[in-house]
Write a protein that binds this DNA or RNA. Structure first.
Lengths: 341, 341
DNA sequence: CTGAAAGCGCTTACAG
DNA sequence: CTGAAAGCGCTTACAG
């Protein structure tokens, strides 16, 4: 019985025109006479017509899909970026297909599937550490879809990207802590080779240097942005005979892990040690203590990356490599204070 | 110059067979002779062939897409559910298309687009409060794709769903608090008509009743699952002359909002008031105090919903309405203790 | 401004 | 077990 979905021929019959005219009236309204257009639109409405995207995409030789590679869907940091991407894409009539790259690092082959032109018209990567074999597929040029990095980027710089001003974030954190009187400032970093870690560290070190402060390598705790990494850093901090009085963390999550593990050991923040996070995720303002952190414009990061990608898709020739940098903002809350004398 | 992506005809030529045979060898390997199959697979490999999904889907009269309606992409509660859905769907070769329904409540028309059979082979809704007009499109039966609710469900019960045992969650929370000696137990609820709110409240009230404890309506703080709602409840709690000594919250977020706002007013948890959350999101174990809460199997919720949906898609006849209920677990941490005498 | 017709790349009854 | 051929529903040069 199933009344099948109406096709363009149904609308054409109803409107008394050809399918070509229906197609034009609906997707390029300015190319048909106004009266025709109105008739067609009314007929489409009446029939409850929706264009079949598989047919349209097949004909137009595109997929209508943008693949977004997310390092970890379970991390709240990414959700607002996705929201920004989705907004930009849905305006342009593209679907967002989200793929968690935890899979990639296990099965790179699986993901290179998605990077193929038959699957996606473009790619947004939120993960700078995609294996070279995956990326090389994307650079090979033989009809590979354009790729834009957002937040993170590929270390070799062969792709366009939208980033936060990470180095500036490191500088702002150090300025703030030094301004409060801290002299021994440590750091909980992301993975050693991560581009965010590197650029923020560069800002941290530059600012420390300009202030005449030294950085003690024993005060570097290397992590991976996770809650657990922060907790591990706390344990290491507790072992130190002369621990830093302030800490800059490469993510809010690590800051939370650090603070909570110290709390378990009866060491209060900021009384014993000041902590600055990075990201300003939603819970940061409601943590105890409320977290001083660098705010990243996550929604705009996603939105801009999507817009940049759409630009690359629309242009026939391959565009130059673009880098767009968005500013960060220091949000001072209650996890930082002057060191106890 | 662009070397175009290889098509099935390229593989056929390379393998010296017809396109029909290539198609069969690749998607129904058991229907061709082994030697043919091997030749074809080798040729496909050599050519770097990937099936064109638009063409396949057009021919098969399907979309290959499942639409997931998420109330708020920015809420970390949903991310793990999405991960579960994605795992189940990618196994079955479906794409997951995520749509934030914040848009829906503004423009219901926009979303009913997605619920149409030309857009999706099936729908997973994580939002029980979809407007009736949207749902009626989905029930109208004229080729509308099947829909499964996950976590939340539609109050009128006209759709299949996968849920947590919410009532049991309410009971476990009350048993725990009463066991600690609490007699005045309040609640921070979700929206009044929300199905989660209703079923958990039913569990709470049933358990209170069986324990011979009364529920004081002044101790009900109505919220909306957000951090801010929890903070507002804290302000209301502070106004009470005889406030409850323990509180059951319909989300971890509201628990955090409540605890943090109390902290700002110098009221410590659990010393002054015990708090139980719901969800067990990642930060719960690293909050200060670590949050006692009901663990929801979020990944499994998503995975099961996807599997159920795939079942409905595969069966030609329309299946009966199914309801699958997954157990919750009370995780006791540090936000609950005996009331101060 | 409009229509007839080709063709996007597949899959699948049908015939052998 | 395999192939020839039709057709999924569109869009778009091309011709008028």
């Amino acid at each position: 019985m199933e009344p099948k979905a109406p096709r363009i021929t149904d609308v054409a019959r109803l409107a008394g025109v050809s399918t070509a005219t229906v197609s034009r009236a609906l997707s390029k309204p300015e190319t048909v006479a106004e009266s025709t257009r109105n008739t067609v639109i009314a007929a489409a409405e009446k029939a409850g017509y929706r264009v079949n995207l598989s047919a349209r995409n097949l004909r137009r030789q595109r997929t209508g899909t943008i693949v977004v590679l997310v390092p970890n869907l379970g991390n709240p940091f990414f959700s607002e970026i996705l929201a920004g991407i989705e907004t930009a894409l849905s305006k342009a009539d593209f679907n967002m297909f989200v793929v968690d790259t935890k899979l990639v690092h296990v099965k790179p082959h699986l993901v290179s599937e998605y990077l193929h032109a038959t699957r996606a018209d473009g790619i947004i990567a939120l993960d700078g550490s995609l294996p070279g074999e995956v990326l090389s597929a994307a650079t090979s040029g033989n009809g590979a879809p354009p790729i834009i990095f957002a937040c993170e980027w590929s270390p070799r710089g062969e792709f366009s990207s939208v980033r936060a001003n990470n180095a500036r974030g490191g500088e702002l954190a150090i300025s703030h802590l030094a301004g409060l009187g801290h002299r021994r400032i440590g750091m909980i970093s992301g993975p050693k080779d991560n581009v965010l870690t590197l650029s923020r560290s560069a800002g941290v070190l530059a600012r420390l240097d300009s202030l005449g402060l030294a950085f003690d390598p024993r005060h570097l705790f290397q992590g991976d942005f996770s809650l657990d990494a922060g907790a591990r850093a706390a344990l290491a901090w507790l072992e130190l005979t002369d621990p830093p009085s302030a800490l800059f963390c490469d993510s809010d999550q690590m800051a939370f892990g650090f603070i909570s593990e110290l709390a378990r050991h009866g060491v209060p923040v900021p009384d014993e040690v000041s902590v600055v996070g990075f990201d300003d995720i939603a819970i940061a303002s409601r943590y105890i203590p409320a977290l001083t952190t660098l705010h990243q414009p996550r929604y705009r990061l996603g939105f801009s990356a999507a817009e940049m990608l759409l630009g690359h898709i629309r242009s026939t020739c391959s565009l130059a490599i673009e880098t767009k940098i968005l500013e960060v903002e220091l949000i001072i809350r209650n996890s930082t204070s002057a060191p106890k004398s």
